[in-house]
Simulated scan of single mutants.
Amino acid sequence: MHELNGRVAVVTGAGSGIGRALALRLADEGMDLALGDVQREALAETGELAGTRGVRVVSRVVDVGEEHEVEAFAEQVYADLGAVHLLCNNAGVFMGGRVWTRPAADFEWALRVNLWGLLHGARAFVPRMLDQGHEGHIVNTCSVAGLFVGPGSAPYTVSKWAAFAATLSLAQELAMQNAKIRVSALCPGGVTTRIHESERVRPAGLRSEPGDDSIFMNEMIRATVENGIPPEEVAGQVVDAVRAGRFLVLTHPAYAGGLPEQAEALVAGRLPGMPDFEWRG
């Protein structure tokens, strides 16, 4: 999808980080915006910043883990803006810890946002986008953790591998239909966001007591984030991928070399190692 000016983009998790950077870059490209986030004040701030670019902006507080909220968001977007050409399912949270030590609530929360958020977004918007008959694009924010598994972040990693599988399935299914909609799996590594502060948006009913493992991994993620690339750089990569129709978007060049290494280990029946580049951001 080469032409963005005058078209409509949806961005979830738009209140901060990659979501805000995406919203502002797409506004600079001349796209009207539909912005969703669970954080009301942060969402309003992004909307105000985007509005200064001279585009139409629709904002709605949305918990992407709730299907009815995402469906209501889609209804509002089509009522107010008339179409959607670019869907960025970007909302995400981080939860660290081991498989056997973290409670079910940690896995439920991570899956609720990181996986079900994508699924709810696809189910609410893709049928409408197909009915439009126009070319379009979907960008799902997965993670480099959806490609490489590292110890100590089981809730997050499980949810992001599932998100990558959902994205690949969606892309293949749309291709089989000869749809005019392309799909990208955005797999960021270290980016200067607040993902290490995800607890600030955790629902009260899914809270848990922190453990040594989750505290340790949160500190590791904080260090990775501090040494990461700016979210504006990621937003630029996304725009390039949309225009090129690229499926896999790796934010750090070093990640590409890890894919064949992992494949070789799996073909040989070996347990893949943790790529050391991941600790370097």
Rank of each mutant, 00 (worst) to 15 (best):
R25W: 06
P253E: 13
A34C: 11
D276S: 15
L115P: 06
D213L: 07
P230N: 08
E278K: 05
L147M: 09
A124Y: 02
G273K: 13
A122S: 11
A175E: 15
M176E: 14
W109K: 10
P151H: 02
G258D: 07
G19Y: 11
A165F: 06
R280D: 14
E209Q: 13
D240K: 14
S198K: 02
A83V: 01
G47D: 11
A204M: 05
G257S: 07
W109C: 01
E219S: 13
R102M: 15
H196Y: 14
L111E: 11
V11S: 08
A154H: 03
R123E: 08
M274T: 15
P155E: 10
R56D: 04
G36S: 11
V64H: 11
A204K: 14
F94E: 11
A105E: 15
D63I: 10
T167S: 09
N140A: 12
W116M: 14
L43A: 03
L266F: 07
H252L: 01
E209H: 03
G146K: 04
W109F: 15
V61L: 00
V144E: 14
G96M: 04
G13S: 11
G281V: 07
A171L: 06
N218C: 05
H68D: 15
G13W: 11
M274E: 14
P188L: 05
Y255W: 12
A175R: 15
G228L: 00
L33V: 03
M220K: 13
P275Y: 07
G15C: 12
E69M: 06
D37G: 00
E219G: 15
G146D: 08
R194N: 14
S184R: 02
S169E: 10
A27Q: 10
F125V: 04
G152P: 08
L266I: 15
P127L: 10
E108L: 13
A72G: 09
A263T: 07
A124I: 08
N90K: 03
V242I: 15
L206R: 10
R25N: 06
A42K: 11
A74I: 00
N140M: 07
T193C: 03
F216P: 00
S159V: 00
L4Y: 06
A166W: 04
T12C: 03
W279R: 14
G258C: 05
L266T: 05
G257A: 12
R207D: 05
L259S: 09
V267Y: 09
P188Y: 12
P275F: 08
G211L: 12
H120D: 05
H196R: 00
F247K: 10
H252T: 07
T192G: 01
G190H: 10
A244I: 02
V55K: 08
E232F: 09
W109R: 06
